[in-house]
Structures are given as structure tokens and as C-alpha cells.
Design a binder for these strands. Sequence first.
DNA 1: GTCATACCATTGGTATACCAGTAAGGCTAA
DNA 2: TTAGCCTTACTGGTATACCAATGGTATGAC
Lengths: 213, 213
Amino acid sequence: MTTHSRRAYEEIRRLILVREIPSDEPISERGLSERLGLGRTPIREALKDLERDGLIEVSPRRGTFVRRLSLADLRDIYEVRMGLEGIAAFLAAARGPTSQLLSFEEKFEKLLDDPSSELLTIQKLGWDFHDAIYEAAGNRELLRLNTGLRNQIGLTMELPRHHDHDRVRATVAEHLKILRAIKAMDPEGAQRAIYQHLSNALSAGAQIFSKFE
Amino acid sequence: MTTHSRRAYEEIRRLILVREIPSDEPISERGLSERLGLGRTPIREALKDLERDGLIEVSPRRGTFVRRLSLADLRDIYEVRMGLEGIAAFLAAARGPTSQLLSFEEKFEKLLDDPSSELLTIQKLGWDFHDAIYEAAGNRELLRLNTGLRNQIGLTMELPRHHDHDRVRATVAEHLKILRAIKAMDPEGAQRAIYQHLSNALSAGAQIFSKFE
DNA sequence: GTCATACCATTGGTATACCAGTAAGGCTAA
DNA sequence: TTAGCCTTACTGGTATACCAATGGTATGAC
């Protein structure tokens, strides 16, 4: 059985990412409690987790707000990703690729050949690829920390359907480069490749971001 | 005012690290509630945080237990540290050392000259140095993630006063190497140095650990 | 009109009663 | 004696009543 807390977490998270809960308006525990038809306790537990994941900020006695990410926050998050995914790629390369990871090679190559493919599909595949790297690292702590980061990034990425066409395509090539380094069991190379990739992604993200401010 | 939840967190954490709460016995929320003279709510909040920090494990309706780290867990934690502290050192080197960080150079050199110094003092200084690197990276997310890891490591480190004399001394030289790379604004070098350092620390830790199993 | 103040609605923090699930120990039947 | 069920005590999960602090607003003095 899934607990109420868990369901509350999922639902509130969804409401935030879909922007049904605006970032400038306080959300009260009682309001959510009523809205979701649950007591305050599971709501509080969910909010606690969301705060830990960096999705909301609680100001005691003032209110709870959806976190509004600054450009600096975005940079911070990406730097952390470099650290975490860098070591993940390093480890994955050191122990050799999983079969799951290898299965991405063909898909990426197909995407490069076929320029008509859906941007969303590509993007989804990219996320899966990143997760697969974490998996291949064989480190449970790493896996645990990944989740929180993913949610935070979602906070910035859902907002616009501002896909930069060229950028999305470029990522495929970058992913392929990472994958090949892991396949070649070249830890440093894999790490370098993912650093480069995330650095590029941050630049692109920052550009989109600044258009919104 | 510091909230009850906060105080509960600190106190329970202390009780765990000092091993006043054994790892094989369940600890109940009600027991802690009574012991600390607080309601169950702040206790639950504290336990939630402790679980998040990897210090305890909650089995619904069975009990809450102090987490018992396996050697694999220890390795996982150190690998995460490599990721996080690696990028921290990288960033610190890229932006140049803080004055706080530089102040460690003299202290380390003094320690190398004076072989009579207290092992505990050296060790404490080492922890402070690692924290200073995080600070120097200028990244708040990194700082946040550091805390959780520190607690987990405490879980393994408090246990024995099993200081390996030679190992502790060796760390000073390794710290100095890291510091100098940051000072020279050599990101890759700093990262390499900290990888090496943590890798050595893990080996030493694993050795002590295995003696206990 | 403006500023100070006192009140009040609303927030998160806390304590606690109650619920549901678990497992261990004793009791019963073979 | 032993296998198996069933009671019971205890766990964490949930709902909710109450508390203290905050900030907006209405009111009244100037």
C-alpha cells in the first residue's frame, strides 16, 4: 500500500511542476489538506520532502512558497550535477557499460540520421540516458541523490516549451560521445565528456532563462 | 528560537553517534518522545531528517533502526564524496582560494614539522579543511549536500578510536597537495589530488572496518 | 490626510487520540 | 511434544485540537 504521505508528495509535486500552484502565492497546509482530502500530517511530511528536494521554501508562520530559482541557483544545480554525474560516468566507465547503457547507442545513431524525430522524444531519451549512467555506476547513494536534483531541474525545465531545436539535437551527439567513452572504458574521458555536456546545457539553459527575467 | 524539531534532531543524532542508541535495537517514536520530553510530532520530523541523511532506517509498523553501514555503503559514500568534493575543489581552484583556505597552509606545514601533535587535533583540522573547500566553491547546493554526508561518515568514524597513526599523518601531506593545487588555480590538479586523497582514505577506512566484522 | 496602534485572521509548530498492520508468545489441538 | 492459530501489545500512519507568532487591516489620534 502506498501511504497518504507518498501520494501527497507525488500530487503536490505534480501541481508545482505543472504550475498549477504559482510560485508567488503562499500555499497553506490546510488548503492542501482540504484540496487533497487528507489530514495535515501527510501533507506536512510531503512538504518536508519537497523542501528537502529544493522545490519549496517554508517560512515559519509566514507561509510556504514554491521555490523560485535564480540563475545562480540554476548554475549551482548544474555544478552539483557535474560532480555527481561526472563521478557516475567515471565509475560506469571503470566497471564497463551495462547492456542497458549500450542499448542507447543504436537509438542515438538513429536519431542523428532522422532529423524529423520529435523533440520531446529526444529529450525523454536523454533523461533516460542520464539515469542509465547513474544505474551503471552501481552506487546506491548516487541514485538517491539523483532524485532530488531531477525534481529541481524539472522546476526550471517544464516552464516553457522553449526547446531550442538546435540545442536538443546537439545533445544527442554529446550523449553519444559520453556513451562511447564509457564503452571504451575510459573514465577520465567519460567524465570530461559529461562535464562538457552539462556545461553546454547550462549555457543553453541560462540563455532561455534570461529571456524570462 | 530554535524549534523542538531541531533540538530533537540534534539530540537524537548525538545519541546515535555516541552509540547510546544501539544499531540492532528498534527505537520507537514514543520512547524518544518520552525520553526527550517532547511530543511525537517533532520527533517524527527529526527522524524524517535523520532518515534522509542516511542515519536511520524506518520500517513501517516494524520499527526504526540505526542504520548499520556495510563496507559497500562506505564505498558508496566515499565515491559520492569524490564527486562532490572533486567538483568543489575544481570550482574552488577555478575561482581562486579564499583567504580562509589559504590560512590552512601554515597550519599544515607546522603539523608536518611537529610530529608530536595530537592526532585528534589533526583530524579536526582535516574536517575543517574539507568544509573550507566546500565554502570556497561558492555553491549553496554543494554546501547543503555536504551536511548529510558528514553525518553518515560520522556513523562509521566515531566508533573506534582506531586512528592509524601513519595514515593520519599522511593525510596532512595530501591536504597540503590539494591546497597547493587550488592556490595554483589548477582545477584538474586539485580534483585529481582530492580523488587520490579520498581513495587513500577509503582504503584505510576499509581496513579498519574489516577488522570489526 | 497620515501615522501609530491594537486587534484579528491565518500561518506553521506542537501534542495527542485514534487507526491499522505486524509479530511474538501463549494456548490449543493433534 | 509440536504445529498452528489467535490474542495482544506495540509499531508507525493519520487526523485534529490547540498554541504562538506573524502581518495585514481597521481605527482613532493628530
